[in-house]
Design a protein around this nucleic acid. Structure first.
Lengths: 143, 143
DNA sequence: TCCATTTTTTGGAATGAGTCAAGAATATGG
DNA sequence: CCATATTCTTGACTCATTCCAAAAAATGGA
């Protein structure tokens, strides 16, 4: 498993100060998958009962800016965070229940798609969200 | 140009009641590109000065559910609406200024991508958001 | 054309994720 | 161990969006 020391080293490696809220938040993101801020606050408070929600927001922003966690914001949902970074994977979202699952990117590096016409933009990443229904919510799954 | 009658027919064609707020909102979305709700309210009130913001929200929801407009929710931005529907095009978002531009989909029909592993989901659409910098914000553009 | 029914709009209040700000606490480098 | 800069706490606040009940309007049939 990943220990507190590992998280501290991850923080130092990203030139971030090692604080207890940051360690707790980083640990929480690793323990959960696609968690929203509220869930992260809950888990972080198991370790550190008095962290303020503001500290969690600040930590998440710092961790996301440093690339230690990835922020995903599926339309119709609050911001979510995940620990898988660097492999440019994508997500599939259930239209019915909102469940999110990971989908590996066939290309593996960003940008994994080339736009047909970039409208003058310099594109460095292509984010793909697949929409559909998870097994439990799919019409076939209900028969 | 598109006339009020055209918009009324679009509403009837979608089995929606023809109301003045809906016509004004549909017209506003056609007149703007990637407009947020506030801008739509402003333009709709040029035709119909007393529409409530709630009526605009309801109209946008009804139009989006009927497929007459498309709702896009870029992370870090409020909901935006556009009139181009049915051609499965994508968007490029500027990381710096938030500007949005259309990018035609090379495939043209949904889903335009096949997931490598669908995690048990039934996928019907692949939404692509390209991230980068627009010409005005790009490092090259500033030299 | 007019009425009754159903749907939509109004207006105001409420929700809730996220942000702002000032002072207190803490991590870091020397 | 100290000085300094960063981070955390606390609490109030913003603002897009939603909820609610009453009033208004659109539609289909007479």
């Amino acid at each position: 498993m990943t220990t507190t020391l590992d998280f501290e080293q991850m923080l130092r490696g990203a030139a971030l100060r090692v604080t207890r809220p940051r360690v707790a938040v980083l640990s929480a993101v690793h323990a959960l998958s696609h968690a929203d801020t509220e869930a992260i606050i809950g888990v972080a408070r198991q370790d550190l009962p008095k962290v303020s929600h503001q500290a969690v927001y600040d930590s998440l922003n710092a961790l996301a800016a440093a690339g230690l966690v990835r922020r995903i914001q599926p339309p119709g949902s609050v911001a979510r965070y995940e620990a898988r970074v660097g492999d440019n994977h994508h997500h599939v979202v259930c239209r019915s229940c909102g469940r999110i699952a990971d989908v590996d990117c066939a290309v593996g590096h960003a940008p994994c798609l080339t736009a047909s016409d970039d409208a003058g933009f310099t594109i460095d990443e292509a984010e793909v969200i697949y929409w559909g229904y998870c097994f439990d919510c799919s019409p076939e799954g209900k028969t």
